[in-house]
Design a protein around this nucleic acid. Structure first.
Ligand SMILES: [Mn+2]
Ligand SMILES: [Mn+2]
Ligand SMILES: [Mn+2]
Ligand SMILES: [Mn+2]
Lengths: 220, 220
DNA sequence: AAGTAATTTTAGATAAGTCTAAAAATTGTT
DNA sequence: AACAATTTTTAGACTTATCTAAAATTACTT
């Protein structure tokens, strides 16, 4: 149906629309796609022709309903394949993204649906991101950044914002994994670092870390 | 490493070298690739530059060692994915080829190896074709065409030559599946059709069918 | 409100892979 | 061996996706 490149643009626009509700700018999209603004303009025109986006010159771009459906379908496939790689093929969560970037473009509705069934209809991928169902519905959850918890508060680690290999390896090294409870022991105002309790041990983490870890706060 | 198109050409040359040992002609390759001879010439030149094939103008093309290794790796992936689709995702053997054509181009050595392990190191794909191991070694087997058995002889059905949906559906409809025993009851010289015994029933099959079914003859 | 800076679009070029039409080489036939 | 038929290659064009450089538009600053 759509080319690999078109699908990647749609996915990028989808993700950026969270941050830029008023329309995704050419430059923002160029940065996300690691390409030049002029290339973005060309592609956005093409997507517009195909009614995948709404585009007005100089005014940024929005996904159309059709574009949004397509983007979500690609994201669904990406996350299902990530689950497959981790759950069935012994990959660790820091190794799966690049392969999923390839697998997400495989075209077969039956394949996606059977994979979903085979995996037991997982609700989240290995990084805690929600997997849309076949109709494109996401499960929304009340997650927040660890950085936004107050001193004394606790939460369950439910996801990562940065899912780069480097960050995920840092988390592994410090035994921070999804599902674990984290409590803010002390906030250091000066550098915004946090002293947290996890695995019954105290650990000092920088702002960089706490701004990239999602937790579900524990009511207490 | 190599583009999807390059990989498909290498695979096609590999398959055609069985039939045309003296070199694969431009036209034969064009037909296999469903493209024009001029496109083939262009691509063959490119593959030659990259030392994937040996090519002399007007003299046809051969795979180099490097080209052969690459082709076998693609075939390995194709067949492993076909096994995955049938064994794990409830696909039938006539539905998997087109999807495997896409999956065979996914680049990750670890993925291939883990998939192989996950599937229990299968030796054959759903159509009876051998799956090369990680070093590119094929299991060779003494299969022959059903058409070449003599009256009274019997064999175990071990593979198909044509793996089109249409042929595989015909086999399903007539309950001809891999592993079953087939005996030649009678050969009709006029149209080269055969009366065979399978599933304890007599069945008349045309030359077209018997020329596309591989059997391993039963010593008797 | 004008002028400058930043962003975005256009114009023209490039690479991969394909095509058609024409030229060149090989093969087959007398 | 010469001519015709077939095969293969070349030349030139097209599409997709990208780039650089220049022009157009919008945003910011005074
Ligand atoms: Mn990912
Ligand atoms: Mn993920
Ligand atoms: Mn196949
Ligand atoms: Mn097969």
């Amino acid at each position: 149906m759509f080319s690999l490149s078109e699908e990647n643009y749609l996915k990028a626009i989808f993700h950026l629309e969270r941050k830029y509700a008023g329309g995704v700018s050419t430059n923002a999209l160029a940065e996300e796609m690691e390409t030049k603004a002029s290339s973005v303009t060309d592609m956005v025109k093409k997507l517009s022709e195909k009614d995948l986006v709404k585009y007005r010159k100089y005014q940024g771009v929005h996904l159309s309903e059709k574009g949004k459906r397509t983007a979500i379908e690609v994201i669904r496939k990406h996350r299902l394949w990530e689950v497959f790689l981790v759950e069935k093929l012994n990959f660790s969560w820091d190794e799966v993204h690049d392969i999923a970037e390839q697998l997400e473009h495989i075209k077969s509705e039956k394949l996606t649906d059977e994979l979903d069934k085979f995996l037991g209809h997982p609700k989240r991928d290995p990084h805690g991101d929600p997997i849309p169902d076949g109709d494109g519905n996401f499960r929304i959850s009340n997650k927040m950044l660890l950085a936004d918890l107050e001193e004394g508060q606790a939460g369950i680690c439910v996801g990562v914002k940065d899912s780069s290999t480097e960050f995920l390896r840092y988390l592994d090294k410090n035994e921070i994994t999804l599902g674990k409870a984290i409590k803010i022991v002390q906030r250091e105002e000066y550098d915004e670092s946090l002293l947290i309790k996890i695995n019954d041990k105290d650990l000092r983490i920088s702002k960089t870390i706490s701004k990239n870890l999602f937790v579900k706060p524990i009511e207490s």
